[in-house]
Each structure stands twice: as structure tokens, then as C-alpha cells.
Design a protein around this nucleic acid. Structure first.
Lengths: 149, 149
DNA sequence: CCAATCGTAACTAACTAAGTTACATGAAGC
DNA sequence: GCTTCATGTAACTTAGTTAGTTACGATTGG
């Protein structure tokens, strides 16, 4: 798992889970999908469990299941549950008292707040169901769902 | 200069430059504004010079000047010149051939492209002149522009 | 009781970006 | 010309972040 790919890796995992709604998948299995190891998976999606997006169970036959139907899981929620920031830049003061900085931060914060709201709104319209639908379309076309690589 | 504060630090510098349009400011002076050192400043704003947003000159009386009036310098240009990415997440394939990943990336890329266009459009409407205007408003209110800290 | 599984802490490794040092290049003033 | 003040840039160091790994405790089902 590369840097900055937590969102796409998590979505990858979730689509696989959505495709096997009855079967609890282990961290081990999920890890192979995204070429990493079980502990990284547990750590990454721990927030999703707290948010009710997935559930986990221990012991024999344990593993991970979706917490609700894919139609009710939006990318906005997932992003928040992962603790991802939508915008990468910081607006924290470094020179308290400098009016130039205050002006810069004020303008930048206005932008950031508006932009975040906008992006969150866009992300809230995309659900896990949209992703599985897209996957099935591709699958029906090609007929294979290779995980050889 | 903290991580992820390149945009706000650069804006800080540019507002100071806009406030002294006749006077070339040295990297040394600019560095003190954002509590770093001259080399970091040169490195950071080198891209702005390439984009014509600022000019630099060497030798006695040398330093940095705005390349054009603040009204014609947008935050969108600055952000691009800094080489900043507007969105933090990656959509590079890690499992070529996996249809699930392809579906995830397709959806995420659609979102990213739309989002980037949107953000760039918003940023292109904010100019350096807006920042200096905001600064002057604050200055007129308080009457001091401390850089003691 | 045992094997499978998650939860989590602690450590290591890899990567990124800022900070620093050093020096070459160029411009202005004497 | 020589000196001084600047930028330009390469190379190295340092600090911070995050993925990866190891280890082990807790829980569950057979």
C-alpha cells in the first residue's frame, strides 16, 4: 500500500466485501487484495468499524462484514471515518500577531471551509453501490476478476 | 515553516512584497517573515519566478519583486507554480488487472477531476489584491503590523 | 483445550520535506 | 578590477510521518 492511497485501498476492500455480503472476510484476505498485511488493514479500517460502516468479529469464522447495505454507505462517510483531510494545506498561525498572516489565513480559511463543504457534498452522493455497479459492468464485459497480480 | 504551509507562507511573503512594490526584498528579509532561512525561501518561490509571478535580481540592491500587479495574480496560479496538489489522495493502480481496483479508480478519478476543476476555478477568483485589501482593513483597524513574534 | 481471529502496542524502515552548509554566478559600487 | 551583496543550486542533515512488522493478549467456536 502506497502513501496517500488509503482511500482507494479501503474502497477496494469494501467493494470486495460488498461482493460477498454473506461471508465474513478476514484481515488476511483483505490484506492480499491491497498487497499489504493484516495489521495494516485492521488499523486502516478500525475507524470504519467505529462509524458502523463495517463490523468485525473474532474467533473461528470471524472477520469483517459491511455494517449496512452498500446503497447507504457514501464516500463522504468513508473519508471521514478514515480521518482523511479533503484539502492538503494548513492554515495554522505561525506568527501570532502578524496582520499579514491573519489576512492570509482568513482568506484561505474561507476558501477551505467552502471547498470542504463542496467536496463533502459531492462525495456524499457517491455510494459503495455505485462502485459495485461499476465493477459489475466491467466484469460482465470481460468476464474475469483477476487478482493474480 | 511547518509542513503543508507552503501556500500560506508564500502568500504571506507575497503580501509583504505587494506592500513594498518599489523595493526589492531579499530572501533574507522574506525568510524572517515566515521564520525560516533564505535558501528555503528561494527554493519555495523558484516556481513563482518561472511562472512570472515574481522576478529576482542578483547583486547589490537585488532581491525579489512582484512580476505584475496584485490584481493579476490569482491563488490558482500561485498554487500551480508551487507545484501543490489540490487533492491529497492518489489514484494510481497498485493491482493492474484487478477489475475492482479499476472500478474504484475510475470513480475516484472522475471525482478528482471534477473537484480539481472546481477548486481551481474558486482559487482563480481570489487575487493577491484581495489579500492585501484584507490586510489593510485589519491594519487600519488596529494600526500596528507586528512582526515581533 | 485448541485453533482461528481480531485489537493493539511497540518497534523498524522508508519516504518526504524542511533546514543547513557550501560554493558558484552575477550585479553594483568603489 | 576588486570587493560586497545578492541569487542559484547541489549536497547533506534532521525531523516527522506512515507503512510495515513483530508480538502478544483477548475472544470465539468447535
Amino acid at each position: 500500500m502506497k502513501r496517500n492511497s488509503r482511500l482507494s485501498s479501503t474502497l477496494h476492500i469494501l467493494v470486495h466485501m460488498a461482493e460477498k455480503p454473506e461471508q465474513a472476510l478476514t484481515s488476511e484476505q483483505l490484506a492480499t487484495f491491497i498487497h499489504t498485511n493484516p495489521v495494516v488493514v485492521r488499523r486502516t479500517i478500525a475507524g470504519l468499524r467505529d462509524a458502523g460502516i463495517v463490523t468485525s468479529s473474532r474467533g473461528h469464522g470471524g472477520g469483517w462484514l459491511l455494517g449496512r447495505v452498500p446503497e447507504k454507505i457514501s464516500l463522504a462517510e468513508i473519508s471521514v471515518a478514515l480521518g482523511e483531510t479533503l484539502l492538503p494545506f494548513s492554515t495554522e498561525p505561525e506568527s501570532p500577531g502578524c496582520l499579514v498572516e491573519q489576512a492570509v489565513i482568513a482568506v484561505l480559511d474561507d476558501f477551505r471551509i467552502a471547498a470542504e463543504r463542496l467536496l463533502a457534498e459531492k462525495l456524499s452522493r457517491i455510494t459503495l453501490a455505485d462502485l459495485t455497479a461499476d465493477f459489475r459492468r466491467r466484469f460482465d464485459l470481460i468476464g474475469v476478476s483477476s487478482h493474480a497480480v
